[in-house]
Nucleic acid binder design. Structure first.
Length: 257
DNA sequence: ATGCCGGGTCCTACCCGA
């Protein structure tokens, strides 16, 4: 089974990239973030033609997440439990498919909106931990993947890319991410490649891609029995060489069975 | 140490991302 996560930075701008990638890589499940449109504008027909069911949580202009799946999916949640569903931003969708519960997340960046913006990020991470804990306690095989907007360690960003007080690298941010690991979740890419660069994002500006001045902020966290099935996990760097690419590349996780 | 790039939208100057 092949699962992937990809912040596409507008699905309408990246429809052809995603269709080409999906047709070539053939993931069973693809989690998309920053689709940046309402549900009615999402080009689901293009992916239906490739054999994928699509489930979308959309919002005008900002955020937006979607799940593409070959096998039928059942939507469990359209927002992160613990946050107010009525006014929450479109940042979470959770589905059940192929015996797995899959949470697709677009975690707040936390650098905008002052202290309240950063508090929202930390609150979001607390709610994510609570949701993960509930599923783990129920022995539910699960995956939480998406754009975490967290560089877990100093190896996860090019030196000099971000100041120490940036919301992606702050001590409280990293502690909140480690809490997810301590619950028993496995960082798929780091399980395969414990050390070194595995960037998933490069800024459009200042020649960041050319200089390989990247960040590792897109992650797939696996429950214990899913982690035991882990075969491979890595960012697909080649996608960043496409014309008009997203600033993020897909992260692909292969599971046995 | 950001908004140089590249999305978005009350269509065009401004907001936002990481």
């Amino acid at each position: 089974m092949k699962l992937a996560t990809w912040n596409v930075n507008s699905i309408r701008q990246r429809e052809r990239h995603v269709a080409e990638w999906v047709g070539r890589v053939q993931p069973d499940v693809l989690l998309l973030q920053e689709t940046k449109c309402e549900e009615t504008q999402f080009p689901a027909e293009a992916f239906a033609g490739l054999g994928y069911q699509t489930e979308v949580v959309g919002q005008k202009a900002y955020n937006g997440v979607a799940v593409l799946s070959k096998a039928p999916v059942e939507v469990v949640h359209r927002c992160l439990p613990g946050l107010d569903c009525d006014d929450v931003q479109a940042r979470y969708i959770e589905v059940r498919t192929e015996g797995l519960t899959v949470g697709n997340l677009y975690l707040p960046n936390g650098n905008s909106g002052g202290p309240a913006g950063y508090d929202y990020k930390l609150r979001w991470m607390e709610c994510l931990a609570a949701r993960a804990e509930a599923l783990l306690e129920a022995d539910e095989p699960c995956v939480f993947a998406g754009d975490y907007n967290v560089c877990p360690t100093d190896e996860d960003l090019a030196p000099g890319t971000l100041p120490a007080e940036d919301a992606l690298v702050r001590a409280e941010t990293r502690a909140a991410f480690r809490k997810l690991l301590w619950l028993g979740l496995t960082d798929a890419v780091r399980a395969v490649q414990p050390r070194g660069k595995a960037y998933t994002f490069w800024d459009y500006q200042a020649g960041a891609w050319r200089r390989d001045a990247g960040l590792r902020i897109d992650h797939a966290l696996l429950s214990p029995e899913v982690a035991e099935r882990l075969v491979s996990a890595k960012p697909d760097r080649d996608e960043r060489n496409q014309p008009q690419p997203s600033d993020h590349v897909p992260v692909v996780v292969e599971l046995a069975g």
